[in-house]
Simulated assay, not measured.
Amino acid sequence: MSPSRGGGWYPPASKPRAVQGGLAARSRRGAISQTWWSERFIAVLEGMGMGSRLQRGKAYARKGQVVSLDIAPGAVDAAVQGSRARPYRVRIGIAAFGKEQWRRVEQHLAENAWYAAKLLAGEMPDDIEELFAAVGLSLFPARANDLTLDCSCPDFAVPCKHLAAVFYLLAEAFDDDPFAILAWRGREREDLLDNVRAARGGVDEAEAADRATPLEDLLDRFYERVAPVHLPAASVAVPTALLDQLPGVDVTVRGASLVDVLRPLYLALGAADDPAEAADPDEPAPSADP
Rank of each mutant, 00 (worst) to 15 (best):
D194A: 10
D194P: 00
N195T: 04
N195V: 00
R197F: 15
R197G: 09
R197C: 07
A198I: 10
A199S: 10
R200A: 03
R200Q: 13
R200D: 00
G201S: 06
G202A: 10
D204T: 07
A206L: 08
A206F: 05
A206P: 05
E207H: 05
E207R: 11
A209H: 02
A209L: 07
D210R: 15
D210A: 11
R211K: 05
A212F: 03
T213W: 05
L215Y: 11
D217I: 02
D217A: 14
L219I: 12
L219A: 11
R221Q: 11
R221S: 11
R221N: 10
F222N: 06
F222C: 10
Y223H: 11
Y223I: 07
E224M: 01
E224L: 08
E224Q: 10
R225Q: 11
R225H: 09
V226H: 14
V226T: 15
P228I: 02
P228D: 07
V229D: 08
V229K: 13
H230L: 10
H230F: 12
L231Y: 07
A233T: 09
A233G: 12
A233N: 07
A234M: 06
A234F: 01
A234G: 05
S235V: 13
S235K: 13
V236Y: 00
V236C: 04
V236D: 10
V238Q: 15
V238I: 13
P239Y: 08
T240K: 02
T240W: 03
A241I: 03
D244I: 09
D244C: 09
L246A: 14
P247A: 12
P247V: 08
P247Q: 11
P247L: 04
G248Q: 14
G248W: 13
V249N: 01
V249Y: 01
D250M: 03
T252H: 09
V253P: 01
